[in-house]
Amino acid sequence: MAEAETCVDCKPENQSVSPTSGATSATTQEHNHLDPSTFVPPSPSITPSITIEFCDRCRWLHRATWTSTELCLTFPTPAIKAITIMPLNAEDTAGRFRVWLFLDGKHPVLVWDRKVEGGFPELKVLKQRIRDHIQPGKSLGHSDK
């Protein structure tokens, strides 16, 4: 799916629905969907691990599984012990594609957010960001060139 395409099921990023009235209004500062400091990560079961959250209504399952496969091949156990793909299907998760990194005893790291970054991750960049947290100095071969 090209980045310019939009999901017909998802609301535009600058609108939200009031849970009480159902009315649509402009996004407020408290609920800024482009501010990573307000994002709440899912809870992992083991570390180090990666969780890929994606909007199921946007049909991004294939992209999430492809990304997880590439990360499994690049960071085999014990570097990464688990990769979870998490389909989401709610109004507040419309258009979401996030990659989280969970490390032992540390706050979860948001490695990628489609809305903040302006598109889907190029695997080279995603792998470099993850590597910098879990195995600094490790060569990624052609992904480092």
Rank of each mutant, 00 (worst) to 15 (best):
A2M: 02
A2V: 02
E5R: 13
E5A: 14
T6Y: 13
C7M: 13
C7F: 10
C7N: 14
V8H: 15
K11C: 09
P12G: 15
P12W: 12
E13Q: 06
E13F: 07
N14A: 09
N14G: 10
S16I: 06
S16L: 03
V17R: 14
S18A: 11
P19S: 07
S21M: 00
S21N: 03
A23Y: 11
A23C: 04
S25T: 14
A26L: 10
A26E: 14
T27E: 11
T27Y: 02
T28K: 09
Q29Y: 09
Q29V: 10
Q29I: 08
E30F: 09
N32C: 05
N32I: 03
H33P: 00
H33M: 02
H33V: 06
D35G: 05
D35K: 12
P36C: 11
S37A: 13
S37F: 05
T38R: 14
T38K: 15
V40W: 08
P41C: 04
P41N: 12
P41K: 08
S43R: 14
S45G: 07
S45Q: 15
I46Y: 06
T47K: 10
I50H: 07
T51Y: 01
I52N: 07
F54C: 01
C55K: 06
D56E: 15
D56S: 12
C58N: 11
C58F: 10
H62D: 12
R63M: 07
T65S: 11
T65M: 07
T65A: 10
W66M: 09
W66S: 11
S68A: 15
S68T: 06
S68M: 07
T69A: 13
E70C: 04
C72N: 14
T74A: 09
T74D: 00
F75V: 06
F75M: 01
P76Y: 08
P78G: 13
P78Y: 13
A79G: 02
A79H: 10
K81P: 01
T84S: 13
I85P: 01
M86R: 15
P87L: 09
P87W: 01
P87K: 11
L88Y: 08
A90G: 12
E91P: 01
A94I: 04
A94M: 05
A94S: 14
G95I: 04
F97N: 05
V99S: 08
V99K: 02
W100T: 07
W100F: 06
W100K: 03
L101A: 05
L103D: 04
L103Y: 00
L103G: 00
K106V: 01
H107I: 06
P108T: 04
P108F: 03
P108Q: 07
P108D: 09
V109N: 12
L110W: 10
L110I: 07
V111F: 03
W112E: 06
D113H: 02
D113M: 03
R114V: 01
R114K: 14
K115N: 13
V116H: 14
V116C: 09
G119A: 10
P121K: 12
P121M: 08
E122Q: 15
L123N: 14
L123I: 12
R129E: 02
I130G: 00
I130P: 00
I130R: 00
H133N: 13
I134H: 06
I134P: 01
P136H: 09
S139R: 09
L140D: 05
L140V: 01
H142M: 13
H142K: 14
S143L: 12
S143I: 04
D144A: 09
